[in-house]
Design a protein around this nucleic acid. Structure first.
Lengths: 196, 196
DNA sequence: AACATTTTGGCACTCGGTGCCACTTGACAC
DNA sequence: GTGTCAAGTGGCACCGAGTGCCAAAATGTT
């Protein structure tokens, strides 16, 4: 293991504390009603320091999503030998679904905050776009090199993300209680014929 | 025709002038580098008045998109007798594509502005979401009433928008020179089997 | 201990956005 | 035309997000 110096440890602590305090305040009062000053005060740092850890107020909300994207990228970069590109994508997505199921409670509160702040909804869609690009890259890598196949890969990725957003939306709508994995598999089966 | 009073005419003029001035400034200096004060000055109104016409600086950029959405809603609300819901959606989309082809120049500059302003990209995705909801409603209306068919309609709408965004992106990438209608038809054919 | 480096806090500033109020201007009487 | 009323405008003060800057504090090093 890497021994972290006191400095590194303190930084990690401050960041985590800011994130914790922010999410709690957002959940209680809504995203817009909470000021950065309040978050900083709750985490016992100055407002200026908040902006050293998070470039914007929105970023502190999406810290979890960044971690998810990293996990997704890792999964896509490590295909099982012999599987098709679409199967790799499928495996990665179902793994993510399992992660969602484990985080039900947090996702529910995050979603409530999200619903009350249009600015966050827009940013949220940007994360989907990043996922889409990751899928597109994975599918293109496994497809033939001609223009139609590559376009088809990108279209498939777009369709995939569009479809899965609907699945997650429905699942959240039902209080994160349904079988997300099953719904995800169903959607994946529907979209599978689009793969190049 | 409705005779517009002087008041109404002046309002329309001011709004159009603000929009014109804003787009020109954005195109020249980038979205972020232009302040609302500059836009207001260029349109010869006060900053306060700008915000009476457009709730945010972003809204002045997306005024055209709002009109597009209205057109789309109208097309979806007027299906030809006897066609399937998916065919209605297809017709509406190809009509929009024709509109895009006619507006090439403007779309190109808009896209350049967009590319330089992440905040605008996020907002842009929200418009896609509205379109998606419109498609979903149209497809659900034409589908059976059971839960799976309805979910499939929503998933199809999500996939459709995801796919078409890719098509438009590719088209813009090539300087709006390719055959957008043909590419759109190709993508629609790919997604068609998803329709409920 | 003394020194170098990183981190922090505070201040001043810009810009987007809003509430408020006084003032102007078009609409509509008579 | 003149007076009246409502709609629209401009200016001002204010808030919150975000940034540049610098001095003070904390940490790491020798």
């Amino acid at each position: 293991m890497t021994e972290l110096g006191l400095r590194e440890r303190k930084k990690a602590e401050a960041s985590a504390e800011l994130e914790r305090a922010a999410l709690e305040l957002f959940a209680r009062h809504g995203f817009d009603a909470v000021t950065v000053d309040q978050i900083a005060a709750a985490a016992d740092v100055s407002r200026r320091t908040f902006f050293r850890y998070f470039p914007t107020k929105e970023d502190v909300f999406f810290s979890r999503r960044r971690a998810q994207m990293d996990a997704l990228a890792r999964l896509l970069a490590a295909p099982e030998p012999g599987e098709t590109a679409f199967e790799t994508v499928r495996r990665a997505l179902l793994r993510l679904a399992d992660g969602h199921l484990a985080d039900r409670e947090r996702i529910l509160t995050e979603q409530r905050v999200l619903a009350g702040a249009p600015a966050l909804v827009a940013r949220d869609l940007e994360w989907d776009r990043r996922a889409e690009r990751a899928f597109a890259a994975a599918l293109e890598a496994g497809a033939k090199r001609d223009a139609v196949s590559r376009r088809r890969a990108r279209v498939c990725a777009g369709a995939l993300v569009g479809a899965l957003r609907v699945v997650i939306e429905d699942w959240v709508q039902k209080g994160c209680r349904g079988d997300l994995r099953k719904a995800g598999e169903e959607a994946l089966d529907w979209v599978a014929p689009l793969a190049p």
